[in-house]
């Protein structure tokens, strides 16, 4: 059991948890993910590591309530226990395995889409700490869905906020901002896009226009996360790869996004059923019976 030592509501639908997991906290590196099970009968859900504190023995995860499983997890409170937390899984970001002196001299631009802001944070934090140049373009639908703005501002050289509706910062998509920056003469060695697959697909198309290498983090379906089931397989450069052990980060130019997005929908109908069942059960729990009160 893994105790939640901090719960923070980042927006109405986005929750941050800091959870005790000492071995994991000591081993985690930017780019990796973990798997959690909220309760004894819960699904295993993969989540990217947002932050980790080896001294304190904690990891930070950020979850958006979408379906029954994420709602179940977000219903937990500070002081509660998460049934299972396992990781770190997957490979660390490529730059983690390159010599620091080499990485230090490079210029990175991160494109963070919505919840993708969370996994961008540890990467930017590391790169910023070693002295690399880091720009972050943070995109969200609307102002209240912008998360970790303050934290992010502290770990990059320039932070650009974009919202679809223009309620904050640049009005438009992260790709629009990227093209604007490069168009105005900004130069980058590498782009990293993390967010919904559709956003990463278009980020890759934008990067290609400028011959800018781009890394994407593939949030596929998963069960075990250790290479055992193959649910997370995707096509990269014409070959089948497992996001859990070969990734989750891949060269964006080589990823078959359409295939990956199609596979993401395999259980959609089941997920909708589960969500409905969850909402009904919750309504039944929350319902205050007034029969006989005589008002």
């Amino acid at each position: 059991m893994y105790r939640i030592i901090r719960k923070e509501q980042l927006s109405t639908v986005i929750t941050l948890f800091e959870v005790e997991a000492p071995l994991l906290a000591r081993a985690a590196k930017p780019g990796q993910f973990l798997i959690v099970r909220a309760l004894e009968d819960s699904e295993r859900i993969p989540l990217t590591v947002c932050d980790f504190n080896p001294e304190k023995g904690t990891v930070t995860i950020v979850i958006q309530t979408i379906g029954a499983s994420s709602k179940e997890l977000c219903a937990l409170e500070q002081g509660d226990y998460v049934c299972d937390v396992v990781g770190p899984l997957g490979r660390p970001s490529e730059f983690m395995e390159q010599p620091v002196e080499e990485v230090r001299g490079k210029s990175f631009v991160f494109l963070a889409g919505g919840l993708g802001t969370a996994p961008v944070y540890p990467q930017a934090k590391y790169l910023h700490s070693i002295g690399a140049k880091v720009d972050v373009i943070l995109g969200a639908k609307t102002e209240r869905l912008v998360i970790l703005e303050k934290e992010m501002a502290g770990v990059c050289d320039n932070l650009y906020i974009c919202t679809d509706d223009g309620s904050k910062g640049f009005k438009g998509l992260v790709t629009g901002k990227l093209e604007e920056l490069i168009g105005s003469g900004r130069q980058y060695d590498t782009a990293v896009a993390i967010g919904p697959m559709i956003m990463m697909k278009f980020a890759t198309l934008s990067a290609r226009k400028f011959n800018l290498p781009i890394i994407v983090s593939m949030n596929t379906l998963m069960v075990d996360g250790t290479g055992m089931c193959g649910a997370c397989r995707l096509t990269v450069d014409g070959q089948t790869k497992f996001a859990c052990v070969d990734g989750p980060e891949f060269d964006g130019y080589k990823v078959d996004f359409d295939g990956a997005m199609r596979r993401l929908g395999i259980y959609r109908s089941k997920e909708m059923e589960a969500n409905e069942a969850y909402e009904q059960a919750k309504a039944a729990r929350d319902h205050k019976c007034r029969i006989g009160i005589g008002e």
Binding site: D41, S42, E43, R44, A68, S69, E72, V223, D224, M228, C229, G230, A231, R233, L234, T235, T240, G259, R262, R263, G265, I266, A274, A277
Partner: peptide, 27 residues
């Protein structure tokens, strides 16, 4: 890679480890 193709490992893990066959299962 078509939807509906899985490894026996995935199919059995969902069913056995995660108990997907049980009524109300979350996986």
């Amino acid at each position: 890679d078509l939807n509906g193709v899985s490894s026996a490992n995935e199919f059995l893990t969902r069913n056995n480890l995660m108990g997907a066959f049980k009524p109300g299962a979350k996986t």
